[in-house]
Design a protein around this nucleic acid. Structure first.
Lengths: 215, 215
DNA sequence: CATCCGATCTGACTGATCGTCAGATTTCTG
DNA sequence: CAGAAATCTGACGATCAGTCAGATCGGATG
C-alpha cells in the first residue's frame, strides 16, 4: 500500500531525497502552525528547510499535495480512535466512562493535529475528494463503531421507530469533531473546556442509549 | 453603527462607487461559490466585475477584508436564528417541535451561506479575531437562548449537579453548525439528511431537557 | 450647451511568487 | 578515483499583488 516515496517525475527517492522531502513536510507543518493557510508560500517553506523552491516541486505537485501527504500520516495515526468505540458495553456506568474516553480521545487527537485538520476540513467542504477521503477515513471508523453500538442498544430495548443509527452516529461524530476543532474558541469565550467535556460525554451517552447518564 | 461606505483612503463613496463596490462583493461571493478559497485572486474578481484590480483596492484592503464585509451582512441576517430559541417552552411535544424548528433554521441558514461560512470558520480557527467576532455574533445569540432554556429546565427539575448549561448550549450549537456545514458531505456518503434531521432534533431536545423526546 | 470639478477608474509599474528546466553539485558504485 | 546516478539550484518567463499618477466620467453651474 505505502509504495516507495517517489519524486514528481516518478523516480524512486533515495536516502538523501527522503530526508529532504521529510524536512520539507516538517517545515510545511510548522508553517501551518503559525501562518494562515492562505498565506503559506512554497518559497517560505523552502527557505525554512534551507533549500530552494525548485526542490520542493521535485517532491510535490503543489502545496495542497504536500499537505495531503501530512494528512495521510495523520489519518494513519487516527485509526487508533476506532478502538475507543469497541469492546465495552455502552449501558450503565461503564457506558458513560466509555463516552468520556471517546470524548477525550477526540479532543486530544484534534489538539495534536489542529492546523492540519483545519485545512482538511476546508478542502473537504470545498469538494476536494482527496481530502474528503482522508477525513472520512478518520471519521468512518468511529462512526461505524458507534452505529453498531446504537443498533445493539436499540435491539435490546423495546425499540419503536427510533432515530436512524447511522445518522445519529454521524451526527455525534460531527459534533465531536466540531467541538474538538474549536477548543481554543471555546476557551477564548466564556466556556471552559472543563465544562464542555461532560457536556459532550453526556450527549454521546444519550445519543447512544437514549437515556440520561447515571450519576 | 453602519457608517457610510468609505473607500480605503477614507473618502465617502457616492452612488457609482457604491454600485461598483457592491458588484465586486457580488462577484467575490460568486467566486467563492466555485473556487477554493486559496485560489481566489483579486485579479479574477476584478475581471468578473468588468473592472480593474486597482479599483478593487480602492474599496478593500485585501480579499479577506472584502469577505469580512460579506460575512458581516450574513451575520446581520443570522440574527433571525435567535428567535428560534425564544418564546416556546422546551418540555413535552412542543419542545421537540421547537428543536426541529431550530435544526431546520440552522440547516437552511448554513446552506444559504455555505461558502462564506467555510471561510469564516477557517479564519476563526486560525485566530483571526475579526472573523471570530462575526462567527460569535451568529452563534452567541443562539447559545445564550439555549443556555437560558437549559437553566430553566434544570431549575424546574430536582436538578442535582447537572452539566453546565452554557457548555451544553455551546456544544449543541457547535454540533448544529458542524453538521450544517457538512450537509453535502453527509449526502455524498451513505447518510441521508432526512435521517440526520431527527437525530439532531433528538440530541437538541435531550441536551436541553435531559429526556428522550416523546413520540 | 460649454465648462468645471470632484468622484471614479485604470494603465503601467515594482516587487513577489509560481512553476520549469537545463545544468551544476553531491553521493554512490565499482 | 572515474563514471553514473541522484539530487539540488540558479535563472527564467509567467502571473499576481499592491500602488500611484493621470485619464475619464457624470453631474452641477452659469
Amino acid at each position: 500500500m505505502t509504495g516507495q516515496v517517489r519524486t514528481v517525475d516518478g523516480r524512486v527517492a533515495g536516502r538523501r531525497g527522503q530526508a529532504t522531502r521529510q524536512k520539507l513536510l516538517d517545515c510545511l507543518r510548522e508553517m501551518l502552525d503559525t501562518s494562515p493557510y492562505r498565506d503559506v508560500k512554497v518559497i517560505d517553506v523552502a527557505r525554512m528547510a534551507g533549500t530552494s523552491p525548485a526542490t520542493f516541486y521535485q517532491y510535490f505537485q503543489d502545496v495542497e499535495s504536500a499537505i495531503l501527504e501530512i494528512a495521510n500520516d495523520m489519518a494513519k495515526d487516527g485509526q487508533r480512535l476506532k478502538a475507543l468505540t469497541e469492546g465495552q458495553g455502552w449501558t450503565g456506568k461503564g457506558g458513560y466512562a466509555a463516552a468520556e474516553a471517546l470524548v477525550d480521545g477526540f479532543l486530544d487527537f484534534w489538539r495534536e493535529y489542529e492546523p492540519i485538520l483545519r485545512v482538511v476540513d476546508l478542502a473537504s467542504a470545498e469538494g476536494d475528494k482527496r481530502f474528503y477521503k482522508v477525513r472520512q477515513s478518520i471519521l468512518t471508523a468511529v462512526t461505524t463503531g458507534l452505529t453498531e453500538a446504537i443498533e445493539e442498544v436499540q435491539a435490546k430495548g423495546k425499540a419503536g421507530d427510533e432515530v436512524a443509527p447511522n445518522a445519529m452516529a454521524g451526527t455525534l461524530v460531527a459534533m465531536l469533531a466540531a467541538v474538538s476543532g474549536h477548543q481554543k474558541g471555546f476557551e477564548t469565550w466564556k466556556i471552559k473546556m472543563k465544562d464542555v467535556r461532560p457536556a459532550l460525554s453526556t450527549l454521546v451517552f444519550m445519543g447512544i442509549t437514549g437515556k440520561k447518564p447515571p450519576r
